[in-house]
Design a binder for these strands. Structure first.
Length: 294
DNA sequence: CTCCAGGTTCCGG
DNA sequence: CCGGAACATGGA
């Protein structure tokens, strides 16, 4: 496979592809194999350049959001030590521009699942119901279109280990395939209207809608609040406060983290997820399950 | 075995 | 508006 070069300053490819935004990239040699839409991709980073198969060059640059102004984004962050530490830890991580339906669908399947499980589900769905793609001697699979999933029975999706999410994914696929919810139309809507529209899909609440907006609709202000973020916000931004409601967290995050809140969120999320365990295991006399008390 | 995971939805204060 | 419970499955 012939590779072409993409200039990529301020990019950490491994960090970006492995940070729980997309779930299907597989390490291959020095690089990564996967699909961007229906295009098979091999990407490999060497210093400030990305080497990619020629047919995927344009799609990769866009997918990796190499045009996002990282310096400006970092400069926009509030200067508190928690976010600054996360930003250093995640330097070079970019918010991917993923296909809209793929973002919606994968995050419908993400509820109450570990990242590893979401990846497993993604691969199963791709292998069984996605378009088959080939790159050199490698076989890859696109994420299945809404139309393909809409034609299935709930049992088919349960067989992909989706559990109760099967009904939600099927229902969402039917609404998108029928045009009842028009994802193309969402692109032109204001953030709040787009969020409201996404929440009409079964299995899509505020958090999943925000993930879809951030990763699939270029809404960099979107700030999904999951269990990890909630822990960080409560402990670091509302210390010694007994009761902080979800509404208070939502309001605080929406205002405090500013126009690139989605970047801040992704950095806080990844940093917390990677470092939390070590902190727990090194806590003196740590008793299982009481890691919250400092 | 127990705990928990990038939640949503429904139900009773 | 708020807290609880049900919902499936598999790693740690």
């Amino acid at each position: 496979v012939e590779l072409v070069v993409l200039p990529a300053v301020s990019l950490d490819l491994k960090l970006t592809l492995g940070s729980g935004q997309a779930f299907h990239w597989v390490a291959q040699g020095e690089g990564w194999l996967g699909a961007i839409g229906n295009t098979p991709v091999y990407m490999e980073q060497r210093g400030a350049e990305v080497f990619v198969n020629q047919e995927a060059a344009a799609a990769s640059g866009r997918y990796l959001a190499l045009d996002h102004p990282l310096e400006e984004i970092y400069a926009s962050f509030p200067k508190d030590p928690t976010l600054q530490e996360a930003a250093v830890f995640c330097a070079g991580m970019r918010i991917l521009r993923q296909p809209a339906w793929e973002a919606v669908a994968t995050f419908i399947t993400s509820s109450m699942k570990q990242v590893a499980h979401i990846a497993q589900i993604s691969h199963t769905l791709r292998r069984r119901y996605g378009r088959r793609l080939s790159l050199g001697e490698h076989t890859l699979f696109a994420y299945p279109e809404a139309e393909a999933l809409a034609a299935l029975e709930e049992g088919d999706l349960r067989a992909c280990a989706l559990g109760y999410r099967a009904k939600n994914l099927l229902g969402a696929a039917k609404m998108v395939a029928s045009g009842e919810v028009d994802l193309t139309e969402l692109a032109g809507m204001a953030d709040e209207d787009a969020q409201k529209e996404l929440c009409r899909l079964p299995g899509v609440g505020e958090k999943v809608a925000n993930c879809a907006l951030l990763f699939g609709f270029e809404r960099l202000r979107s700030f999904p609040v999951d269990v990890w973020i909630e822990r960080v916000i409560r402990e670091k931004y509302f210390p010694r406060r007994k009761t902080v409601t979800a509404a208070q967290i939502r309001t605080f995050c929406a205002e405090y983290f500013g126009p690139y809140g989605g970047y801040a969120q992704q950095y806080l999320f990844h940093h917390a997820r990677i470092t939390w365990n070590s902190r727990r295991s090194t806590a003196a006399g740590s008793k299982r399950g009481s890691a919250k008390s400092s």
